[in-house]
Amino acid sequence: MNPSDSVSLYRSMLRIRRVEEALAARYAEQEMRCPMHLCIGQEAIAAGVCAALERSDSVFSNHRAHGHYLAKGGNLNRMIAELYGCSTGCCGGRGGSMHLIDLSVGFMGSTPIVGGTVPLAVGVAWAATLKAGREVVVAFFGDGCFEEGVVHESMNFAALHKLPVIFVCEDNDFSVYTRRDARQPDRPIHEVAAAHGLRAASGNGSDVDEVFGLATEAVDRARLGEGPQFLEFRTYRWREHCGPNFDDEFDYRSEHEIKKGLSECPVDFYKSRLALTPGQEESLIDSLEKEIKKEIDAAFRFAQESALPGVGDGLSKLYV
């Protein structure tokens, strides 16, 4: 990996982190009046996978979508405006945090029914092959989603027709507060995908180089017509399932587990990979932080100055 790629991966993760921290800090104002699922701690998967894609490739996501949307190049102003319910939001205020879209960069949509968008990704890949295009499609989902029947239906069809789709499973071990071992037998998730006929691999979702490497191989294979790919990444959700807070006071994770999870911060961990002198590192990070803060402040200003929809605005666009 060349140094500029490393910096851009680092920047992508740092940007997601700072955006979500800004959201968390302002959530208590009760102006962003919608459920919000933060991906703090899981940024490397979004950043690494999306860096392996071209702009014309497509991504579908789930309720925890901010990172995927931003990493794919989704417009930050429109995302923040959407969370505030503004007319300028990416869904005009109809969606909120759980419904993001930016078709100009191939972010096809995110929705909160677990598994809901996985077959859609397969369908886009199917249409791409019918049109003999070179598009690759990614479906992001969690370990809980892997229990949904529709995911297995989707993998079956994708494998049968050798479709250029990449299933990316972010395994943070929890469905809300329920651990994976209470929901699934003790076997690797990716081996089940392999049994469906997919090329499957797993890796450390806190190491963006590893994510990027595996994703690049998977994208190349999918684009060459080798059929669907499955990537399983272990990761750690820092905060509550839904909402801006840490929720460790509920004691659902041991102190040891929390300490270990936080110590594997994908953003901090990656500084050493930049291979810079302490002086260079400080200067780079300082300039990235400033640039990102400026962008975030501008995005919140954009939202706060945006036009607001009225009641009647919800009574249109039901049909084409």
């Binding site: 859609l120 397969v122 791409a128 049109k131 989707s154 069809f157």
Partner: peptide
């Protein structure tokens, strides 16, 4: 056979796959 398909017995998945194909212009 590229336009007239039999399908796996997977009604929900196939409906979603058709929705995805429709989003891509089919």
């Amino acid at each position: 056979p590229r336009r007239v398909f039999d399908m796996p017995l997977a009604e929900n998945g196939m409906t979603g796959i058709c929705i995805g194909a429709a989003l891509r212009g089919m």
